[in-house]
Nucleic acid binder design. Sequence first.
DNA 1: TTAGGGTTAG
Length: 515
Amino acid sequence: MIRKKRGTITAVTNVRTLKQIRALMIVNGFNSNVGFLRKLVLAAAMSMVGTAATTAVTQYALKMFAEIPQPDTFMWNTFIRGSCQSPDPVHAVALYAQMDQRSVKPDNFTFPFILKACTKLFWVNTGSAVHGRVLRLGFASNVVVRNSLLVFHAKCGDLKVATEIFDDSDKGDVVAWSALIAGYAQRGDLSAAQIMFDEMPERDLVAWNVMITGYAKHGEMDRARKLFDKAPVRDVVSWNTVISGYVFRGLNQEALELFDEMGEVGECPDEVTMLSLLSACADLGDLESGQKVHDKIMGMSKGKFSTLLGNALVDMYAKCGNIAEAIRVFWLIRDKDVVSWNTVIGGLAFHGHAEESLGLFREMQRTKVCPDEITFIGVLAACSHAGNVDEGNRYFHLMRSKYKIEPNIRHCGCVVDMLGRAGLLKEAFYFIASMKIEPNAIVWRSLLGACKVHGDVELAKRANEQLLRMRRDHSGDYVLLSNTYASQGEWDGAEKVRKLMDDNGVTKNRGSSFV
DNA sequence: TTAGGGTTAG
């Protein structure tokens, strides 16, 4: 989907297009003329927008850029800007460093991009070093550079420096105002943000959106909605802010209703709107609404969709139980990133298609996309559900040896679950004992549940001791232990647990469930 | 070229 905003690189491209352009460049000679090269760089930069740093298309774009013998500052800026608009702008920082190594001078266009990258990555030290360089090279007098510094400090923690820059700014500079208000709002100081907002001499659209975002992100949806209703002007971002705010708070139905209103007033939704809506449908398990959103997306973008939207569609279909459609859409995603794979692998694993999930993981290993810690949560869950202990153990070791990922508590939870389901209770217990990280209640509860299924009273008692050490008020733990006794005909034991429960003042919540 | 909205686990 193409998003229109001034100064933003908007088109979506792919490896095939890049290869065609590169072939043209080779035929015409790489050095032929600056105009050609600038177009080449723009195409390469465009391909990085919205896709993760690890995708094939980004790797190809980097390769193309590296082939240009002497890129000028304009080309470096364009390319850094492209990387900056990816969700993980690590290359922007690397390119900025390369620029320096190759003695290409940065200009007042370079700094806003690199500072934005530092802000997105939350790289405080790098950003501060850039700030130093801005001062040394005398670019601090440029309004855009100065505001970029303000944003960086406001978002990455130093509101004092941000305020100093603001105090030196022109009092009518709405960008500086909005940036500082956003800084206060982001850290939850909404009263400070509101005071500044009230003091603002001229409030433009973005300042309103900043305030609405501030309230929405901090759970005050009523105030966010009131401000939205009161705003003199609204754009697609205003709508998206409130819609995503509802989704963020789990008010999915409200999000869908507001989307209907959006259509009634004739505001055009964009990709962000659709992402929020798909998330709402996924959460509700509302396949019918999800399908409608899908149709709308196809209508908006002539049958094409970005990686981001593809991922959200796969997630929605998996969570709504339409596995066939989830898989179909997954294969339609042109540039699959790690999130695409994680979504489909996890989606299948958690919705009863463990074998297919593992098949896709094997497929993933044949691609250049590197699995991450989230991938392995899905993979281990799939092994658990498939009862495939050997493969699960193998992958648990593989994630460390090959992919250098340290298992976290969730990975360990999956392994305990896997061993427990397979009836390997002692193995599960020894696994917990050997864990490098502190086991949590979920891990012990998983073992306790397996003990109930397989009727191991001794281990159940030990798991329960651990659980009671952590939390004495979780009725489910007592019930599980008591049922374990009961399932083995040990009625005295069962009764004792019931009594312990009363003594500790725990009441059983009948009929309540998180599922 | 700078300010505001977004996808995967739990």
